[in-house]
Amino acid sequence: MNNSHPRYVTRSAVEGLVEKMKLPAPGEFTQDWEYEVADSTRIGEFLHAYENMDLNLEEKFALMIIIVESYNDAILGNKVEENMAELIKYHLIRDINIHINTIYYWAKLDEDDIENVFAITPFMRELAAIDKKM
């Protein structure tokens, strides 16, 4: 994949993560697999995989979406672990060339009403602001 700014989760990324991480395979009519397999109780495991597994660019992109969705769910459930935000932030910034579209999607910069955004949006807006300074 030559595009360093992925926009979509590819079938090969899903297949790779299913195999490498033993995640559930998508069903026949699954459209948003990366959101369906998110799990706020597994953020640490997902981060460990991101840091330690041999993942290609597409797999890193897909896994980070799973991590971000899982963290969003953790925020909603008041189950945020102390160091998770810093680890997620570190990886998003370190690999910003892969995750810039993910950052801007969740940052919802075009929405002024805080009631119409994700729980993780303030966190992602901070990262979008860092990107603009780079």
Results as ranks from 00 to 15, higher is better:
Lys20Pro: 03
Ala13Asn: 08
Asn2Tyr: 01
Asn72Cys: 06
Asp95Gly: 07
Glu82Pro: 01
Ala38Gln: 02
Tyr8Leu: 12
Glu15Pro: 06
Arg42His: 03
Ile100Lys: 14
Asp39Lys: 07
Thr121Pro: 05
Lys132Met: 09
Asp73Ala: 07
Tyr35Glu: 03
Glu19Ala: 13
Trp106Asn: 09
Asp110Tyr: 03
Pro26Ile: 04
Asn116Glu: 14
Leu76Asp: 12
Thr30Asp: 14
Lys89Gln: 09
Asn56Gly: 06
Leu57His: 13
Lys108Trp: 03
Met124Ile: 08
Lys22Met: 12
Ile43Gln: 10
Thr41Tyr: 06
Val37Tyr: 04
Ala128Asp: 10
Tyr104Phe: 15
Ile88Gln: 02
Pro122Leu: 01
His91Gly: 11
Val9Trp: 00
Lys89Tyr: 09
Lys132Cys: 09
Ile114Met: 15
Glu86Ala: 11
Asp95Tyr: 14
His48Arg: 14
Ala128Phe: 02
Glu82Gly: 02
Tyr50Met: 04
Tyr50Gln: 08
Ile114Leu: 12
Val80Ser: 05
Trp33Pro: 03
Glu45Arg: 15
Asp112Lys: 14
Met21Gln: 08
Thr41Asp: 11
Ile96Ser: 12
Leu92Ser: 09
Asp113Ala: 10
Pro6Lys: 08
Leu76Ser: 12
Ala128Cys: 08
Glu82His: 05
Ile93Glu: 12
Val9Asp: 08
Asp39Leu: 01
Met84Trp: 15
Ile65Leu: 14
Gly44Phe: 07
